[in-house]
Design a protein around this nucleic acid. Structure first.
Lengths: 162, 162
DNA sequence: GTCAGTGCAAAAGATTTGCATGCGA
DNA sequence: TCGCATGCAAATCTTTTGCACTGAC
């Protein structure tokens, strides 16, 4: 897993390689995006970026996220709530899946080798050569079951309610 | 797995229980929906229903699919292509996942007990009580790899291209 | 100076909703 | 008859695009 600075450099390098320009907007969007631990929606990303630099338009956020996707630096996720979210890519060798809390909206990442193997096996059995997969588990997390309301869980729940 | 007629009756019963009316449009939409083996998009469903009864509006298809969801008779799927698709629900005791061919778009359903168990185990390990999950595998099917172009694969590929 | 990048507003695509009319119970 | 259901069009919501202007190289 690379640092924010490393990802930022990788983005700038990718832009240069493609003959594209570095701009204040792209820098600001990338900075916010790489700095977030969460799975951001476009709107959340836009709002965060605007705090840093109000001279950024919605369209530019869309255009920049698309660029980040093309560079392999952002992964797009379509969870069950219908919202499209983006996360900072972990790299090819760091595949992971997600488990989401139905109550507070918390998203936890995990990786499991047995699961990967089993998926290969199922695909083979069905005559497919597996290219990729997507798995999401949904349930209730321990904090929500125990009625503990941590600040971060509260914030996440509030975001989900809005 | 119930028959088309059984599902149709279940829908009429559910409507009656909710104090809602049976109408020609609802009947026609349900008939087409329960009769399809495929994972239909709203647009595909609309077109099919129009062949049967041109006096059906787009909005009614949306409203009826929403009703079917509420009755537990339709499952909504968001696959990676971004299109929202619906399938006739198999019932709580018939959970299944999907594997999709990246080339011809074919969608194959499967169920695997080991997979279900492993998911439970992962959720428990992470402190979650699992409610449901979603898994999709993507790859290339045998027919596409072997260059065989079956009529159904051709039809599916054509639909995907359009 | 050149041309890609940007903001804005308009467009496009998917889904929902308001409203007058239609029709099932 | 009464009120839910429908069709249509308009409204939303999300994402993309056209265009004139700005700014990076």
């Amino acid at each position: 897993m690379s640092t924010r600075a490393e990802r930022f450099s990788a983005f700038r390098r990718a832009l240069k390689d493609k003959g594209l320009k570095s701009t204040a907007q792209r820098d600001d969007i990338a900075h916010v995006f790489f700095g977030s631990q969460r799975h951001l929606s476009i709107d959340e990303l836009y709002r965060e970026v605007r705090k840093l630099n109000p001279r950024v338009g919605y369209a530019t956020v869309y255009r920049t996220i698309k660029l980040l996707k093309e560079c392999g630096l952002a992964d797009e996720q379509h969870f069950a709530d219908g919202q499209t979210r983006y996360e900072s890519a972990k790299g090819d060798d760091h595949h992971h899946d997600h488990i989401l809390c139905d109550r507070c909206g918390k998203i936890v990442e995990f990786a499991d080798d047995d699961l990967e193997r089993l998926q290969e096996e199922i695909a083979t059995r069905l005559g497919f050569v597996l290219a990729r997969h997507r798995m999401e588990l949904y349930g209730i997390c321990r904090e929500c079951r125990e009625g503990v309301r941590t600040p971060s869980a509260e914030a996440t729940a509030a975001r989900n309610r809005s």
